[in-house]
Amino acid sequence: MVADMGGAAALPRKNGELVFETPWESQAFGMAIALSDRGHYDWEEFRQRLISEIGGWERSDEDERAVWNYYRHWLASFEALVKERGLLSEEEINERASEFVSGTRDDHHH
């Protein structure tokens, strides 16, 4: 079967599954790494946040917690770190988000 044949170029996708399920997951992934690359924080700081964020989910009540989504924890950790570093504030994120929801701001890329 052609689909089962080797070939390094095709490996990342067919050697497993698609890495990201939704665009926001890849966005979250890209942002966290790109900001670390730019020196806004050490990668290890992000990792430690992600570990404790996931740990919090694991310790929480099974009936009450959100369904498991790795990148949700990823994004929550990223947002918390960005706020802690004073790069963005809770208020401006909320405001920007509601602008997107209400349509007063347009999606100019992505």
Partner: peptide
């Protein structure tokens, strides 16, 4: 998704 978009937009 909106949260991610807002974060990226601001950054």
């Amino acid at each position: 998704a909106v949260r991610a978009k807002a974060l990226e937009s601001l950054l």
